[in-house]
Amino acid sequence: MASANPVISSERVEGTSVYNPAGDKLGSIDDLMIDKISGQVRYAVLEFGGFLGIGTDRYPLPWSMLKYDTSQDGYVVPLTKEQIDGAPRYASDKVPDYDDRYSGTIDKYYGL
């Protein structure tokens, strides 16, 4: 029987695959963005696009949108590849400040 432990190490989250509801792999988790004050994970940064890790962009997804699916051993988000392709993103070497303005842009895109 699987453990029902409610916590997970960020090391285990990073690299986990992300799928859409149809089972298509959208990418994998590259990083987690944690609120300094509350300690809560605010965003999971999806690595998506490129070829063999070259030219991949980072797409911050609101953590609340990700649901872990044990049958896929990954997270599922209610998004299509096209929706993610049009989402806020940045190059891996150009991490933006996750200030209120940038966070607002992400949340607005996803309707939160």
Rank of each mutant, 00 (worst) to 15 (best):
G50D: 08
K67C: 08
R101S: 15
K67P: 06
Y19F: 13
Y110F: 15
A44W: 06
P96T: 07
S71L: 10
T80G: 03
I34S: 03
Y75V: 01
D100F: 11
Y59L: 05
R89I: 06
S64H: 13
D69E: 10
W63A: 04
S103G: 11
Y109N: 05
R89H: 14
R12P: 06
L26E: 02
E14M: 15
N20F: 00
D35G: 03
D35E: 12
G50V: 08
A87E: 04
L46S: 01
P78A: 08
A44G: 08
S3L: 14
I84M: 03
V7H: 11
T70Y: 14
Y19S: 03
A44E: 07
L79I: 00
Y102I: 05
G39W: 02
P60L: 00
D69G: 02
Y68H: 09
M1G: 15
D73F: 12
P60K: 01
T70M: 12
L26W: 01
V77A: 13
V45N: 02
S92V: 09
V41I: 08
D24E: 15
E11Q: 15
R12A: 15
I37G: 11
G104V: 03
G15W: 07
R89D: 09
D57A: 10
I106Q: 00
K25T: 11
K94L: 09
G39R: 07
I8P: 09
I8H: 09
R89F: 06
P60E: 04
I37Y: 10
P78C: 04
L26A: 00
G86I: 00
I54Q: 09
G111M: 06
L79S: 04
G27W: 01
R42S: 15
N5S: 14
S17G: 11
D24V: 12
M65E: 07
G23S: 04
R89S: 13
M65L: 13
D35I: 08
V7P: 05
Y102P: 00
T105E: 12
G111R: 07
E47W: 09
L32A: 02
R89C: 09
I106N: 00
S38A: 07
G15K: 04
D100Y: 10
P62E: 02
P78Q: 04
Q83S: 10
S38R: 02
D107H: 06
D57G: 13
P88K: 06
K81Y: 06
S71G: 04
K108R: 13
I34Y: 04
M33D: 13
T80L: 00
E14L: 15
S28F: 09
D31Q: 10
S71A: 11
D24Q: 12
N20M: 04
G74D: 04
L52K: 14
G15I: 02
I34Q: 09
Y19C: 01
D57N: 11
Y75C: 01
Y75L: 04
G53Q: 04
K36A: 15
I54L: 11
Y109F: 14
N20L: 03
S103P: 06
P6A: 03
Y110S: 02
Y59N: 07
T16H: 07
I29H: 02
D31I: 00
P6W: 01
Y102C: 07
G39T: 06
D97P: 10
V95F: 08
I34E: 08
G111A: 05
S17W: 09
